[in-house]
Design a protein around this nucleic acid. Structure first.
Lengths: 217, 217
DNA sequence: AAAGCAAGATCTGTATACAGATTACCATAT
DNA sequence: ATATGGTAATCTGTATACAGATCTTGCTTT
């Protein structure tokens, strides 16, 4: 059974990721509680959970959806570039044959799947599959958290996303390195891949053709 | 004014860091609430906060002090080795003259201060001073968190600590690099410094002469 | 018309209360 | 002596209640 606080946290998280709730919007306990038909206690729990995930700013008394900024995006990618290659290097030797087969077909599907949101989900799953082979629970948790935070920026420009061909190619290269047991290569490819993703989304967000990227300071 | 939940969180944190509350010990909301003379609500908040910091395991219904293990220590240092050099490189160009003077005298004090706990505090302050010059709030927060978690292991062997001479020398080298504006060198020295700290504490913990390092799986 | 102020509306932190689940424990039966 | 069952003690999740702080709002005063 799912507790009320989990349900509220999941709902708010979803709405914040997709941008339905705007960055900077205040999250009053009372209003959220009324909205979901629960008391303020589970809402408190949910807000604290989301604050721990970095989606909410808990400014002493008031909770607001954390704002988006190019600076924060930069910082998030710097952290990912530091951590994920390490995680890849550690995980690579433990990636079993079954998972490699799975990822191979996943990549094939992704190259055929036009809906951008599906590509994003596949992308997350690809990397998560590799990472899950590392016996590093905290590193995995941190990575998951950082990826979730960057997701907000992806959804911001999701309707103009596209041209993921290069990123897909890099996925293949990473998988090849893992298959051949070259952990160092896989790690370095991952680092480059993340750097490229950063450039990619940054370019989209700064492109004057991108429609209304409001809430971005 | 400090809220009750903050007071409880701070108290529990302190007791967990020093090992007064043993790893694996269950933290019942009711008992903690009674112990501090507050209701369960602020205790819930405090436990969630500590869980976010990684000091407490929130297993669906029950909260327990997170256990200590050589494996987790390894993981924490792997993360620190990945992040802190990056933070050093970014911070280095922004470290002002005043801070350098401050750190210089801090290092001098540390070499003269015999109480180990004071050395640990000075150590934390030295690195924090450098990091605070980087405009990277989240990276700083993560680093703080990781350092706090490793602190638990340091306190575990605090009575046998000593021989920090080499680490002190490395501090000087890092500070020299920062002073000369060589960010890359400062970053690499930081990485090596963290690796050495890891070896250092690991050696202490595994040393058969170290008295009773219980609670370590 | 602008400034100031007072009453009300919110909102948070926290205490208390209650239902349901879990655990502990002890007496009883085999 | 061990298994068993039931009762009591805990414990959690959540609702409700209340006090104090803060923000609105609209009226009054100059």
């Amino acid at each position: 059974m799912e507790s009320a606080s989990e349900r509220v946290a999941r709902a708010l998280r979803q709405r914040m990721l997709t941008g339905e709730i705007e960055p900077g919007a205040p999250l009053s306990q009372s209003r959220v509680a009324a909205e979901y038909g629960v008391s303020r206690i589970p809402v408190r729990d949910a807000l604290r959970e989301l604050a721990a995930e970095g989606l909410v700013d808990l400014d002493a008394t008031t909770a607001v959806v954390r704002g988006l900024s190019i600076g924060e995006l930069q910082e998030l990618y710097e952290m990912r570039e530091a951590i994920e290659p390490v995680l890849t290097r550690i995980a690579a030797p433990s990636v079993g044959r079954a998972k490699i087969v799975m990822m191979t077909s996943l990549l094939r599907e992704m190259e055929a799947s036009p809906p951008v949101v599906d590509w994003l989900k596949g992308n997350a799953r690809f990397h998560a599959t590799i990472y899950s082979c590392a016996d590093r629970p905290r590193m995995i948790e941190l990575t998951t958290q950082l990826r979730r935070l960057t997701d907000r920026y992806l959804y911001l420009g999701v309707d103009v996303l596209g041209g993921t061909g290069r990123l897909s190619t890099e996925h293949r290269l990473i998988l090849d390195a893992v298959r051949e047991g070259d952990a160092a290569a896989a790690a370095d490819l991952t680092r480059a891949h993340i750097a490229r993703s950063h450039e990619f989304i940054l370019g989209r967000l700064l492109d004057p053709l991108t429609p209304q990227v409001a809430h971005l300071t």
